[in-house]
Write a protein that binds this DNA or RNA. Structure first.
Length: 379
DNA sequence: ATGTTC
């Protein structure tokens, strides 16, 4: 079981990380502060734990109310893995990268039709459907590095696509409205609680559809098809018999296979969560490597010269990074993240998951430069 | 994280 501690009357805090793992003190203090909040029943910290704006990222929180702050500003954000019907050895990195630039452009498909087909009501933010977004979001072409479980369904010859994106403006608006309202906990049976859950569910379905459309666009750019392998959200809340379970940067352990991505310069792991996991883990596992360094400190760590940028545009596997936003290129450098091997090692050591396959990054798509508006279009 | 610079 995880290392645990309990201070008078506060909810128990269980950390599922080794003492040697890189966990910031500030993140642990945030975790303890969450446990001290009235109505919080239990808190689980994952090995990718790091400090966040409204509380720690990389944790699961069981409470007697809905806490919108615990879900954060990107409800529905998550990972989706797709198998491509193309052999990874047939891919040429630079040609694939050139084609995948399309995914970083606005989507010009039939968004209204796409949403209607899947029973999603229109919103003010639908124009962003099919686009990656900013921050840590990405669309990554991958090759299989290793298959550990021959029955996991992963074909070592194929290329795969990993999409990390969320609900864009929808989730942002969802939290903004709660902030305007005092960011209070909501009773599940209250009108405000029900309204939150309804909007939250819409954001989750929109985010899932967003990842699917991004994958379809990437597959179309590569002249192939994408078949879903697994998908989950790591920013969400679920009302269960035992309480309200919040996941803030935590993947579910009760919904099948989960991808735990490393940084864009590291392997990503497909894991099978274990049914025998301790209940203190709150039906959750890590959602990624977790940040090691604050965004604002990264410029000083990786440098800003042309050669620094050229280095950051490649990965250690000979792969390529499409990120024409210089600040983002630096903020999301591989060095900003914890080593994924340690996170996976902790998941295994604490009996939360077993690894079934690993993937290496070939092309990571983030952002392309804004097209400069034509003179006659400017005011 | 953010139709992020209305």
């Amino acid at each position: 079981m995880g290392n645990s501690h309990r201070v008078d009357g506060r909810a128990p805090v269980h950390g599922f990380y080794a003492s040697s793992s890189w966990i910031e003190g500030a993140a642990v203090r945030q975790l303890e502060a969450v446990a001290a909040i009235s109505g919080v029943c239990a808190v689980a910290g994952m090995p990718d734990l790091h400090p966040g704006k409204f509380g720690p990222v990389g944790c699961a929180i069981l409470a007697d109310h809905i806490h919108p702050a615990f879900v954060g500003s990107d409800a529905g954000c998550g990972m989706a893995l797709f198998a491509l019907d193309i052999a990874s050895r047939r891919l040429r990195i630079d040609k694939a990268a050139d084609r995948l630039r399309d995914v970083a452009k606005p989507y010009d498909g039939d968004i209204a039709g796409e949403l209607a087909m899947h029973g999603l009501a229109p919103s003010d933010f639908d124009a962003a459907l099919g686009t990656i977004g900013g921050g840590n979001h990405f669309c990554e072409l991958q090759a299989v590095e290793e298959v550990f479980d021959p029955n996991c369904g992963i074909d070592r010859d194929r290329a795969y696509l990993l999409v990390h994106s969320g609900s864009r403006g929808l989730g942002h608006q969802l939290l903004e409205r709660q902030v305007a309202d005092g960011l209070r906990p909501l009773a599940t049976d209250s009108a405000a609680g029900q309204a939150y859950l309804q909007a939250h569910d819409h954001a989750l379905r929109w985010a899932s559809r967003n990842r699917q459309v991004i994958a379809q666009r990437a597959a179309a750019a590569l002249r192939c098809e994408a078949d879903p392998v697994c998908e989950c959200s790591h920013n969400c809340v679920v009302h269960r018999a035992d309480g309200v379970l919040h996941r803030k940067g935590a993947a579910p352990s009760d919904q099948g296979l989960v991808v735990v991505p490393g940084s864009r310069g590291a392997l990503s792991y497909l894991v099978a969560p274990l049914a025998t996991a301790p209940k203190e883990a709150l039906w959750s596992i890590a959602h990624g490597a977790g940040r090691k360094f604050d965004r604002s400190s990264m410029m000083g760590r990786v440098g800003a010269t042309r050669s620094d940028r050229e280095r950051l545009a490649r990965n250690p596997f000979g792969g390529s990074v499409i990120c024409e936003d210089r600040a983002l290129l630096v903020e999301e450098a591989p060095e900003a993240y914890k080593p994924i091997a340690g996170v996976i090692g902790d998941l295994e050591a604490f009996g939360l998951a077993r690894v079934v396959a690993s993937f290496r990054p070939l092309v990571t798509v983030k952002k392309i430069a804004n097209e400069r508006p034509r003179r006659e279009d400017r005011r």
